[in-house]
């Protein structure tokens, strides 16, 4: 999923300073799962914003709504009945949702309430780690199911650099050396011979090197 974290409170407060009627929009997808911008977080942020304005003797009108999927125009359409009453929209979804709202509602002042972080997997409750950079040309088939693009700090494709210590990456002991993991797994699977195949320089076009990416499925695009 796409992971996100709430922005610093003061940054959000600064964005909203000129406004008094806020449409606060959460999303039921990824940001709900990573507890950054689901219905609960919408409620908590609204409450914090209320506390802040009450202290300043102001009232702030916050309409809370959490959409099924903010990156989908079909669901963003639900905001139509609320948008005119709002001075600003504060989105708690990933950047995709923020932009879908901004695209649909040309006049709306839209602000992000979260920082979109990475495509990751859940390691345990409350812990997420980066697992994919969307390079558009998946290499997991030759690296035993462990991604060197997203998990090696240097995205090295031909093995570990010289900085590995105790199986950890040179950037710090909290990061496993991806190539150590790949090597161990290749061995476990009995296919360690694959390591020696030279991996050519990667074509980064599918990764975004050819400009913003788009998928068009002719069979679906009616």
């Amino acid at each position: 999923m796409i992971t996100a974290e709430q922005k610093p409170m003061q940054e959000i407060i600064q964005y909203l300073a000129p406004y008094s009627k806020i449409l606060l929009v959460g999303c039921n997808e990824c940001v709900t799962v990573c507890a950054a911008g689901g219905r609960k977080e919408v409620g908590l942020l609204a409450s914090a914003l209320h506390l802040n304005s009450l202290k300043q003797g102001k009232t702030i009108d916050i309409k809370e709504i959490t959409l099924e999927r903010q990156c989908d125009p079909e669901y963003v359409e639900e905001l139509t009945s609320y948008i005119d009453a709002a001075d600003a929209v504060l989105s708690m979804s990933c950047g995709c949702g923020v932009q879908t709202i901004a695209t649909r509602f040309k006049q709306a002042h839209v602000y992000p309430a979260v920082n979109t972080k990475f495509m990751g997997a859940s390691l345990s409750q409350g812990v997420w780690a980066e697992r994919c950079q969307g390079c558009g040309d998946c290499m997991l088939g030759i690296t035993a199911g462990i991604c060197p693009v997203s998990r090696c700090s240097k995205s090295l494709l031909n093995g570990p650099c010289g900085g590995t210590s105790n199986g950890q990456c040179e950037i710090g002991p909290e990061t496993d050396c991806a190539w150590r993991l790949i090597w161990e797994r290749l061995k476990e699977l009995g296919i360690e011979g694959r390591y020696e195949a030279l991996v050519d320089a990667k074509d980064w076009r599918p990764a975004g090197g050819a400009g913003p990416r788009k998928i068009i499925r002719e069979d679906l695009a009616l």
Partner: peptide, 12 residues
């Protein structure tokens, strides 16, 4: 601190 706001706390 909301009492510093000098307004009646409205039901939210």
């Amino acid at each position: 601190p909301i009492s510093q706001g000098k307004i009646e706390v409205q039901a939210v």
